[in-house]
């Protein structure tokens, strides 16, 4: 069953009189349980694609079906609801609220889901990333890797269909980055569909499938042959 299905996805920006085609006629499917990396140089459209897949933005034309629902025509508030219920975000710079405890950060999506805060759920989500004892700490009291794990816990709290990760290891050293990839892999093993943007080859090798973009067009789409598995001897670079 496809979680993501795009047909001729196109996004154009207008900068004065110049029309910039950030994404041009991109079509692909992502099945449930896939772990896909999106690669490409800067300006290739990978961030634009991720924003569309994450429902932060709507395409200029084309169709995007998320979990068999066409979300390409939804309005702003409907997109917000989709982001809240079906998508979990992991950003390069973690994007945690400062002066707010890890626990409260994890609870944040619950505020907008109509369920209200739940300490139990937040602790359960933190346990999935191994930080159940760090809930009362502020982001500034946590290491970069820990902050990213809190961000992953936040992404998981509403049981999303899709995890969208934008350079999740970009701000981390390679060891910590490896840990974070390990968490993503284990989530994927448990059935979570993940789409991740990266420009690092060895990070992309943790995924099961890689698509390359260039100038807003789909260049290649291939399965990873020698996948790096976290914790497997000799696989770490």
């Amino acid at each position: 069953m496809p979680i993501i299905e795009t047909e001729s996805l196109t996004k154009t920006y207008h900068m004065g009189d110049v029309e910039l085609r950030a994404l041009n006629d991109v079509s692909f499917r992502v099945e449930q349980g896939e772990f896909m990396a999106i690669m490409g140089s800067s300006g290739s459209g990978k961030s634009t694609l991720l924003n569309l897949l994450g429902c932060l933005d709507a395409p200029t034309s084309g169709v995007y079906r998320l979990d068999n629902v066409d979300v390409s025509t939804l309005g702003e508030d409907e997109l917000a609801r989709v982001r809240n219920k079906k998508i979990g975000f992991v950003f390069q710079s973690y994007n945690l609220l400062a002066r707010t405890s890890a626990l409260a950060n994890v609870e944040l999506p619950l505020l907008y889901s109509g369920r209200g805060r739940s300490r139990d759920r937040a602790i359960a989500a933190l346990r999935r990333v191994g930080l159940q004892d760090w809930g009362d700490h502020l982001p500034s009291q946590l290491s970069g890797g820990q902050q990213q794990r809190v961000a992953i816990a936040r992404a998981l709290i509403n049981d999303p269909e899709l995890l969208v990760a934008d350079e999740p290891t970009g701000n981390l050293d390679s060891r910590t980055g490896e840990d974070v990839m390990g968490i993503l892999q284990s989530l994927n093993d448990a059935g979570m569909t993940i789409v991740m943007v990266t420009h690092e080859d060895d990070i992309s090798q943790h995924a099961k499938r890689i698509i390359h973009l260039r100038d807003g067009e789909l260049l290649s789409d291939q399965l990873v042959e020698n996948r790096i598995i976290f914790g497997k001897e000799g696989s770490a670079p």
Binding site: A80, R81, K85, F89, N95, P109, Y112, N158
Partner: peptide, 16 residues
């Protein structure tokens, strides 16, 4: 601004 972005990303509507 960034806080607003984060809140919107995790599902805050305009009204929220």
């Amino acid at each position: 601004t960034r806080e607003i972005g984060i809140r919107k990303a995790v599902g805050a509507s305009r009204r929220d």
